[in-house]
Amino acid sequence: MTYTLKMQNEKVPKFKNKNFLTLNDFSTEEILYMLDEAKELKQMQKAGKQHSFLQGKVLGMIFEKSSTRTRVSFEVGMLQLGGHAIFLSSRDIQLGRGETVGDTAKVLSRYVDGIMIRTFEHSKIEELANHADVPIINGLTDDHHPTQVMADLLTILEHKGKLEGLKVCYVGDGNNMAHSLIEGAVKVGMKIAVASPEGYAANEMIVQRAKKEAAKTGGEVILTNDPAEAASDADVIITDVWASMGQEEEQQERMKIFTPYQVNEKLCSYAKKDYLFLHCLPAHRGEEVTAEILDGKHSVVFDEAENRLHAQKAIMKLLMG
């Protein structure tokens, strides 16, 4: 599975007006095409070339969860693509005052060309998509974080030159990052091993669905309680915070449970010598990852953070262009 899809005389996938809710909604070819698009847009931006593919377009950005990277990358991305972005917090819109999701979707569809939402329940974004007449982009829900994983795949591709056949190790909570990593990895033929404490495993339905997909792509999904097993011969090691937004009350309990799952030098010694370390950020040094790893030579977390911009620009261009 090579990174040359757009160079080939393949039929171009149809993205216009599609929603971007989970990576499971897209084929292998579509994901590779989006990555190729992201690479091209990144090259154009670095070269200072104008790329106003969304001239005059407007993205509505609904934030029910706060954010640094998501807000800035989407807002800057729309600006670089020639469009505009409108920030809408839950305090600013009627959705937070009792208006139905369906009514909000119908109204915003009359004003904007696309909607990005960062929210809690995944069912809310599905309802938004059911009622909207413009593309809906998932900026994060409690169950999925697909834009982040597109940035992760782009980063791995840049540093490794391929995706297919690589082993990804994810250590930590079986949360939205774990779910989207599982879905994205199997779509591009990667092997993913997820190590979580008992009771914190990834959603079984998502895992089983991914295993069926892996049978078609040559990927593999492994769930374990042993971080060393997951990290063994890994090309990439990824982790996330132990308590996500909305789980602050569980912080102390989770600290005790997840301490054996810290990404440190000992754990990373099981990986390949040229492994990459990724983290979606913000990171808590000394908790889920040590400073030596996060700031070390294997870490590409700031390349990864930058690639949110380029991956999301590709998604917006293809859906809204």
Score class of each variant (00 low, 15 high):
K6I: 15
M7I: 11
V12M: 10
N24H: 15
N24S: 15
Y33A: 12
L35K: 06
L35H: 02
L41A: 10
K42E: 13
M44E: 14
K46Q: 14
H51D: 09
L54Q: 01
L54K: 00
Q55C: 11
G56K: 09
K65Q: 07
R71Q: 08
H84Y: 12
A85S: 13
S89C: 08
S90N: 15
D92G: 09
I93C: 09
Q94C: 07
G98D: 00
E99T: 12
T104F: 02
S109G: 00
R110T: 14
V112I: 14
I115M: 11
D133N: 15
I136Y: 02
I136W: 03
G139V: 04
T141K: 00
H144Q: 11
A151W: 00
L154Y: 06
L157K: 14
K160W: 06
G161C: 10
Y170L: 10
G172K: 07
M177K: 00
M177E: 01
A178H: 01
V186Q: 08
V194W: 03
E198F: 05
E204H: 13
E204K: 15
Q208Y: 00
K211V: 14
E213H: 01
L223S: 13
P227H: 02
A228Y: 15
I237T: 00
D240V: 00
V241D: 05
E249N: 12
E250A: 04
Q252G: 07
Y261H: 07
C268M: 15
S269H: 06
Y275H: 14
L276R: 11
L276D: 06
C280H: 06
P282Q: 07
G286C: 11
T290F: 00
D303H: 05
E304N: 08
L309T: 01
Q312A: 01
K317H: 14
L319N: 05
G321Y: 09
